[in-house]
Design a binder for these strands. Structure first.
Length: 184
DNA sequence: CGAACGATTAGCT
DNA sequence: GCTAATCGTTCGA
C-alpha cells in the first residue's frame, strides 16, 4: 500500500485494513482486527493535541505510530487522514502466516493462536520497537499489501478504554480464530 | 516534582 | 473472573 491509501477517516481505513497483509522484516500475516482513533475522540492519544509521545499521529499518513502500553508492550498503529490531524488505526491482531518460528521464539509460545491475538502480542511477535515510530509503511522493514476482499466484517466497541464506549470503531474478520476477543 | 493512569497480558482462582 | 506487573506520559500543584 502507498501513503495515498491512508487518507480516509480512521474508521474507514480501519475497516479496509481487515484482510490486508502486514509484514515486518519478513515476519507477519493477515490483519484480522483493528481499532480506529481520531482527534475528536476522547479515547484517542491525540485527543488533547500533539505531545512528544503522539507526535507521529500528527505526521504524514501512511507511517507508523508506535507507543509503549502499560510500560510493558509495544503497540503498532497506522497514521491516517492528513498530516496534522492526529488519526490512526491500532493493529490489534493478525493471522500469523510468515516467520512462524521467529514469532514463536520472540513470544516464547508454540500455540499459533496466541502469537498475534492482541496489540501487545502483535508488537512482540513482529519485533516492534520505538525505532519504528514514524517510519514509512511502504518502505523497509514494513510491507503492507491491500486486502483482496471483500471480507465479512464484525464491528463493536473498542477494548480497554474508559471513554467513548458508544463508538463502535473496533473491526474484525468475522469468525477468525485469531481475534483478541470474540465480537458480541 | 509528585502522582495517577493507562488503546495489555499472563497467570491464578 | 481478578489482579499483579511495570514504567512512560501527562497533568496538576
Amino acid at each position: 500500500m502507498s501513503p495515498g491509501d491512508f487518507l480516509g477517516d480512521s474508521h474507514e481505513v480501519a475497516r479496509a485494513l481487515i484482510g490486508a497483509m502486514l509484514v515486518v522484516d519478513g515476519v507477519g500475516g493477515r490483519i484480522v482486527e483493528t481499532e480506529a482513533y481520531d482527534r475528536e475522540d476522547p479515547a484517542s492519544h491525540s485527543f488533547s493535541g500533539p505531545t512528544p509521545r503522539n507526535e507521529a499521529m500528527f505526521g504524514p499518513p501512511g507511517r507508523a505510530y508506535v507507543y509503549r502500553s502499560y510500560g510493558i508492550h509495544w503497540c503498532l498503529n497506522f497514521v491516517c487522514r492528513e498530516e496534522g490531524h492526529g488519526a490512526g488505526v491500532l493493529i490489534r491482531a493478525i493471522e500469523p502466516l510468515l516467520g512462524l518460528d521467529v514469532m514463536r521464539e520472540r513470544r516464547g509460545l508454540e500455540d499459533v493462536r496466541l502469537l498475534c491475538s492482541g496489540p501487545g502480542r502483535v508488537g512482540q511477535a513482529l519485533g516492534i520497537t520505538r525505532e519504528l515510530n514514524g517510519k514509512r509503511l511502504d518502505q523497509s522493514p514494513f510491507q503492507v499489501l491491500s486486502a483482496a476482499g471483500p471480507f465479512p466484517i464484525a464491528m463493536g466497541p473498542r477494548i480497554g478504554i474508559s471513554k467513548a464506549m458508544e463508538v463502535h470503531w473496533r473491526f474484525g474478520l468475522q469468525g477468525s480464530p485469531f481475534l483478541s476477543r470474540r465480537f458480541a
